[in-house]
Computed example of a mutant assay.
Amino acid sequence: MNIQCEVPACNVPEKEIRAVLKNHTTVAVVGISHKPERDSHKVAAYLLGAGYRMVPVHPLQKEILGQTVYPDLAAVPFPIEIVNIFRRPDMVEPIVDQAIAVNARVVWMQVGVVNNKAARKAEAAGLRVIMNRCIKTEHMKMVAQAMSG
């Protein structure tokens, strides 16, 4: 099956990405892998090391990186601020629905993940949307900028 990647119809400006990273500390990583070589695992480990509360979300795992894994966003027993999505674009919309239902503040789709329909739905519900960007890369840029200026 050939899945086409959309171009983001909109994205928040750099300044707003920095604000998201500074003001929100609980990040659910949806689609995290238990395999250390996978990007989702590396990003989750980075977030933990950077001081974020990283919440792994995967229906088949119990523990990843020493953290309890939840089968979906609804199962997480505390507020989630950022929903970081490591899933195919065609699987994003139900995750956005869950993010809206749990009152998340931000939907963040990783590099290669763009779903404009889901983004419009999230924005209509008051969530900020970041697409086709890596949360780890953006955090590293923010730290580098803070150190240089």
Rank of each mutant, 00 (worst) to 15 (best):
M54H: 00
V83T: 10
K62A: 15
A75M: 13
T25D: 12
M91P: 02
G49Q: 02
V55G: 02
F86C: 10
R18M: 04
V107C: 09
R38W: 04
P13Y: 06
M109L: 11
A74W: 01
A101P: 07
V43C: 05
A74L: 06
R38A: 08
Y52N: 13
P71Q: 07
D39R: 13
A75K: 12
I82E: 00
P79C: 11
V114E: 00
G112Q: 06
V30K: 10
I64A: 05
N115H: 04
V55E: 01
M54F: 00
G112Y: 03
M54E: 01
V29D: 04
V107H: 05
I64R: 04
K22L: 14
K62D: 13
D97A: 07
V20W: 01
F86H: 09
R38K: 15
E37Y: 12
R88L: 15
D90N: 15
T68K: 15
N23H: 13
F86N: 12
N11H: 09
D90Y: 10
H34R: 10
P56V: 04
E81A: 13
E16Y: 05
N23W: 01
V96I: 03
P77H: 12
R88A: 14
H24E: 08
V30F: 12
I17E: 00
N84L: 13
A19Y: 01
E14N: 08
P89L: 00
V55H: 01
D72H: 14
Q98R: 13
I85T: 02
K62H: 12
L60C: 15
P89D: 01
L60A: 11
A44M: 11
N84F: 09
A50N: 02
R88G: 09
L47P: 06
V83C: 05
D39K: 15
P79Y: 14
R87V: 09
K35Q: 15
